[in-house]
């Protein structure tokens, strides 16, 4: 039986641009009327413990996918993929002269937020859970190594390219506003893989099908929070209704800015961005590309109407050119019936 839908599997509401809808409106999932949930990953409090990676692997029974050393700081996971649904990135930065830049004391920061005092000498930003923003000071005053750690995950895009291009309807939008692959439907065509602007989804080599973060669909169904958020000891990974998370994130950025961490910025929180906002967004301390994230991702299907238009014109020009070739042959006196 053929189930003619406009972009989703059996359980999902229509997703996307080309189908006329504007994706999932903020806050509410239009189909289920449920609140859209998401992740806010505040990398300023990540301590790089990888509890999220472990919890994810355990809960979702994800197979092992390589035990090699990468030489990339403490990151031996490498990247998100079919069998890595949380990936903690480690960036070691040597920073030049401290002129005008922020330096957070190693053990400061119990003083709470927004109390930067003393002529631009910032306090460590107080964080929920009591950890500090991480700035390792080496050799006394001239702290010149900075660690950035960030737990990356599928963004559960508002306009999800993976879902749009999936030809089988295996990828669908859940009642929570998340994007999930139905393993029993996916036929391993691999189209979602290069479609994702963040390089998240991937096929398992031995299996052929595509896998990615489900935001613990099973746990959400049981009213639980996802395993990674549950396991995170510093509340770097926060789970909840997207609206609430966005409000909380805006406060957090203000707090950090007031504390002198001017490089703090949100990534993926803007519903006006190229993917209509991420269901899983981040607070970063440097440019997105430093963490391996695209600086300005755009859902490829935004341009699909233009592509179909050009493909249509191109198809007609093929017909026209071939027609013209026959006319030209006739005009130049070759009817194909001559002696040749």
């Amino acid at each position: 039986m053929t189930d003619v839908t406009d972009g989703t599997g059996p359980a999902g509401p229509p997703s996307t641009l080309a189908s006329g809808g504007r994706g999932v409106p903020d806050g509410m999932d239009p189909h289920s009327g449920r609140e859209r949930v998401g992740f806010f990953t505040d990398t300023s409090v990540c301590i790089g413990c990888k509890a999220c990676e472990v919890a994810c692997k355990e809960w979702n029974a994800i197979p092992e996918d390589g035990m090699s050393l990468t030489g990339m700081s403490y990151d031996n996971t490498g990247a998100l993929g079919a069998s890595t649904w949380r990936h903690v990135a480690f960036v070691e930065q040597t920073r030049p002269a401290p002129e005008g830049r922020t330096e957070l004391p190693l053990l400061g920061g119990r003083s709470g937020a927004g109390t930067a005092s003393g002529g631009g000498e910032p306090q460590g930003a107080g964080v929920p859970g009591g950890a500090t923003a991480q700035e390792t000071v080496e050799g006394g005053s001239g702290g010149d190594i900075r660690w950035l750690m960030s737990s990356d995950v599928c963004k559960h895009c508002t306009h999800a390219a993976c879902l749009d291009v999936c030809p089988t309807g295996a990828l669908f939008r859940t009642e929570f506003g998340t994007v999930v692959v139905q393993e029993d439907v996916c036929n391993g065509c691999g189209y979602c893989v290069p479609a994702c602007p963040y390089g998240v989804i991937e096929q398992r080599p031995d299996d052929g099908r595509a896998f990615k973060c489900t935001m613990c669909y099973d746990r959400l169904g049981a009213g639980q929070e996802p395993a990674c958020a549950k396991a995170c000891p510093t509340e770097s990974i926060q789970f909840g209704p997207l609206d609430e998370l966005r409000a909380r994130a805006a406060l957090r950025v203000d707090q950090l800015h007031e504390a002198g961490v001017t490089e703090a910025r949100l990534y993926g929180e803007d519903p006006e961005d190229g993917v209509g906002g991420d269901g899983a967004f981040f607070l970063l301390l440097d440019e997105p590309e430093v963490y391996g994230l695209p600086p300005d991702p755009v859902v490829t299907t935004r341009d699909l109407p233009a592509m179909w238009k050009h493909a249509g014109v191109a198809a007609l020009s093929l017909l026209g050119a071939c027609g013209a070739a026959f006319v030209a042959a006739a005009v130049t006196g070759n009817t194909g019936r001559g002696r040749g």
Partner: peptide
């Protein structure tokens, strides 16, 4: 041949999705 699960080729014809060129192509 290029499918991860060739035996599930028929799933291509499970839905018709204009947003998926592969579906349109199938």
């Amino acid at each position: 041949h290029d499918l991860g699960v060739p035996s599930r080729f028929y799933n291509m014809l499970r839905v018709a999705k204009p947003t998926s060129p592969m579906s349109v192509g199938s």
